[in-house]
Design a protein around this nucleic acid. Structure first.
Lengths: 149, 149
DNA sequence: GCATATTAGTTTCAAATGAAACCACTGACA
DNA sequence: TGTCAGTGGTTTCATTTGAAACTAATATGC
């Protein structure tokens, strides 16, 4: 069978492909370290993470901050409420809205998981120089912007 | 409500998170340009892409090359065969195996989609200098290696 | 040869996902 | 105050996903 000599597209070098495989592997490797151990899915962890930053947020605000789907947020919030990791407060002005924040046990969980997450991130970038990290940051900012056309 | 002043983990700056959101957005934006128009899912496109490189591959080899799940490969291959985009040849030594390659119409489809994909990639990196692209490449190689521990 | 382990690829089944429909409420405007 | 468009959040339903079980064939040990 004649082998096409100079294929113009090599999947292994194609940016969208490289990004998805890389990100899948990284997310899975990280989740492997906390999901079973703390009974926490990736969406749940993300919500924990934004709420851990301190400000109470409505579901819609969580959607904005995490870039998650609103259905995913709704479900993960429900699970976290069942597990008593969150507190729900009706908005006094608007009865549709409620703000969410970490409960005591949610905060405790957050404080357990954060070091694991940070340690994992640290390992990923451990061998990069300060400049390389700086450049990576700029690269991601650039790509984020280009996508918005 | 007192705002926790120095949260140790900011989701927006957390590498695994940045990677997944970025890669999701990029894959979706790209798929939007070919999926409906050519009736091609992301897994199907990936298989088309590796086979378009010229060498006939078995399903297992496609799994290796694309980092896809074997179930995903099996299903996408089935669909592509139904649509006559692939040809299937029994391996003469091993009756379990068969090698897959693009049919005439598969090749034609490939040649239609590749320019779209490459153009999209080009747009993503259009404003990056040669060095920045070089560094990006090294960065991905590095991260790929670190994941393997 | 005949068991036994392995490998290629498929199917099954249960869970994750997301678009669209939905419910409940607000806010504007007549 | 009554209607109606818009928003916050949930539910439904159809599709996608992937782990585990399965089928069929090969390879290995005896």
């Amino acid at each position: 069978m004649p082998c096409k000599p100079n294929s113009p597209l090599l999947l292994q070098r194609f940016l969208p492909y490289r990004l998805t495989t890389l990100s899948n592997k990284i997310s899975q490797a990280l989740a492997a370290q906390y999901s079973q151990r703390f009974d926490l899915s990736i969406p749940e962890w993300r919500i924990l993470a934004v709420l851990g930053e301190g400000t109470a947020l409505s579901a819609a605000e969580i959607v904005q901050r995490t870039a998650m789907d609103k259905v995913a947020v709704s479900r993960a919030v429900k699970k976290l409420l069942e597990k008593q990791r969150l507190e729900k407060n009706q908005d006094s002005n608007d009865n549709r809205r409620f703000s969410l924040s970490l409960s005591e046990s949610g905060q405790a969980l957050y404080e357990e998981v954060v070091p694991i997450a940070l340690e994992y991130e640290r390992r990923l970038i451990a061998e990069l120089s300060h400049d390389e990290i700086e450049n990576m940051d700029k690269l991601f900012n650039h790509l984020d912007n280009v996508i918005l056309k």
